[in-house]
Design a binder for these strands. Structure first.
Length: 268
DNA sequence: TAGGCCATCTGGTCCT
DNA sequence: AGGACCAGATGGCCTA
């Protein structure tokens, strides 16, 4: 016997049926990371949908005032609402919550798009937690690179050199092409499993690389699954990006200035 | 088959 | 009062 709310869902990975979709407050699917909401014909023949319909049909509708039903203004307290009205309210709330989560997923997709990680149909999508952790390290790395760049420019100008002819404009290089000095280990540990679909063969990690938890900047208990096996990335490949410095630990040693950043703990 | 990840529902809380 | 936000619960899909 499924929970009541489960009557409204069907195969949430591939197809969805949501009675709430009829709500006037629904603004339509906004999700890109999850399947579009669609009515699956199979649902109309299964027991879940029949149970849902039977449930609604058996409810008395005479007490359904036009003011309290649907998205109309509510004039009664929640305790005074009929069963039908409560259900309508519940569907409305569910619809809003679903849309909110879809928007959140869309933002997550937007974040994935700007992450220096191989993307494509054959590559498994980064999980949410991996995306967030990777994004954090990416920001730290970019900040560190920027500081180093400033220091370098300062040194060059301080020495009276002709930096203008040597150094490209700061804005000429996209952020994704800045040196990924310390992102490699984090990438390896975060996407070790996901990158198994990548075409690049497995690479061995340099022995100097610190444990993944240290690079990720979070403590082990916070994410036991991700760091369950710090060397898990050894079994996965990493896709090198053309025209982009390789972030993997083999190609890029970890500078001290960046390493210090990774000792920061991630606050909750 | 267990575990990870996810979408969804739900009730509570806070804010406008 | 209504909406946003959050966390817990639940069940489905996928992978090792």
């Amino acid at each position: 016997m499924p929970k009541p709310h489960m009557l409204f869902t069907h195969d949430n990975k591939n197809t969805h049926f949501s009675p709430e979709r009829d709500s006037c407050c629904d603004s339509g699917p906004s999700r890109s990371s999850s399947p579009e909401l669609a009515v699956d014909s199979r649902f109309f023949s299964n027991k879940m949908f029949q149970a849902y319909c039977a449930d609604r049909e058996t409810e008395p509708r005479s007490d359904r005032s036009p003011q309290s039903a649907g998205c109309g203004g509510k004039v009664r307290g929640r305790a005074d609402l009929s069963k039908d009205d409560l259900q309508d309210l519940r569907l409305k709330v569910n619809s809003r919550e679903r849309k909110r989560m879809h928007d959140l997923n869309q933002a997550m997709d937007g974040l994935r798009e700007v992450m220096p990680y191989a993307q494509g149909p054959s590559v498994r999508k980064l999980s949410k937690i991996s995306t967030l952790l990777l994004a954090r390290n990416y920001i730290l790395m970019l900040s560190s690179s920027l500081e180093e760049m400033k220091k370098l420019v300062g040194d060059v100008y301080g020495a009276g050199g002709s930096a203008r002819r040597v150094l490209p404009p700061a804005s000429s290089a996209p952020a994704s092409q800045l040196p990924l000095l310390s992102l490699g280990p984090a990438l390896h540990s975060l996407v070790g499993g996901a990158s198994q679909h990548a075409s690049v063969p497995t690479v061995a990690q340099a022995p100097r690389s610190p444990p993944a938890s240290g690079y990720l900047g979070f403590h082990a208990p916070a994410l036991p699954t991700l760091i369950k096996d710090p060397l898990q990335h050894l079994s996965g490949g990493y896709r090198h990006f053309p025209g982009m410095p390789c972030p993997c630990s083999l190609c890029q040693p970890l500078p001290a200035s960046t390493a210090s950043l990774h000792s920061l703990s991630m606050g909750k």
